[in-house]
Amino acid sequence: MRAVYLVTLFVSSVTYAIAAEVAVPMNTVNEQGTVKAIGSIKITELPNGLVFTPVLEGLPAGEHGFHLHENPNCEAKEKEGKMTPALAAGGHYDPKATKKHAGPEGSGHLGDLPKLVVNTNGKVTESVMAPRLRMEDVKGRALVIHAGGDNYSDQPEPLGGGKGRIACGIIGN
Rank of each mutant, 00 (worst) to 15 (best):
G122F: 09
P95W: 11
D154E: 09
V144Y: 08
R134W: 04
P95I: 13
T125G: 09
E126V: 15
L113N: 05
A89K: 01
D112F: 05
A130S: 12
T84G: 00
G103I: 05
P156S: 08
T125C: 04
A86Y: 08
P156M: 07
P104R: 00
P158E: 12
K139D: 00
D94V: 09
K123L: 06
I145N: 04
Y93K: 01
H92S: 15
S153I: 01
A86S: 12
L110C: 09
T120F: 04
N121E: 14
K115L: 15
M129C: 02
G90P: 05
L159A: 15
L116P: 08
G160W: 09
T98E: 07
S127E: 14
P114D: 08
L143G: 07
S127H: 11
E136K: 12
A97K: 15
L116S: 10
G140I: 06
V117L: 10
H92M: 09
G108A: 00
G103Y: 03
L159Y: 13
P104Y: 13
V117K: 14
K100I: 00
T125N: 13
L110S: 10
S153N: 02
Y152I: 02
G111F: 10
L116H: 08
I145E: 05
G148M: 12
T120V: 07
V138E: 05
S127W: 10
H146Y: 11
N121R: 10
R132G: 09
I145D: 02
E136S: 10
R132I: 06
A102W: 09
T120C: 00
M129Y: 05
G103T: 01
A142F: 04
G160T: 07
G111K: 08
T125Y: 03
T98A: 06
A147Y: 14
E136C: 00
P131M: 02
V144C: 08
D137E: 01
T125A: 13
G160H: 10
E126M: 13
L143W: 04
P95K: 12
Q155F: 11
P131F: 05
L159T: 03
V124G: 03
P104V: 03
A102D: 14
R134E: 12
D94T: 11
A142E: 02
A130H: 02
L113H: 09
Y93F: 15
D150I: 05
N121M: 11
L133Y: 11
V124T: 14
G103C: 06
S127L: 04
G140P: 05
V117Y: 06
A86G: 05
T120S: 14
T120I: 04
P156E: 08
T84M: 11
G140W: 06
V128R: 14
M129I: 13
T120D: 14
G91V: 00
S153K: 00
G111C: 07
E105N: 07
G111T: 06
S107F: 00
P114Q: 14
A88K: 15
G106K: 02
K115D: 10
K115G: 13
G161F: 05
D154K: 02
H92N: 13
V118Q: 00
L113V: 07
G148C: 12
G91Q: 01
D94P: 07
G108P: 00
L143E: 03
G122M: 09
N119F: 12
A97R: 13
P95R: 13
V124M: 04
K100S: 08
G160K: 06
S107V: 06
L113C: 08
A97I: 09
A88P: 10
L113R: 07
D137Q: 02
D150S: 12
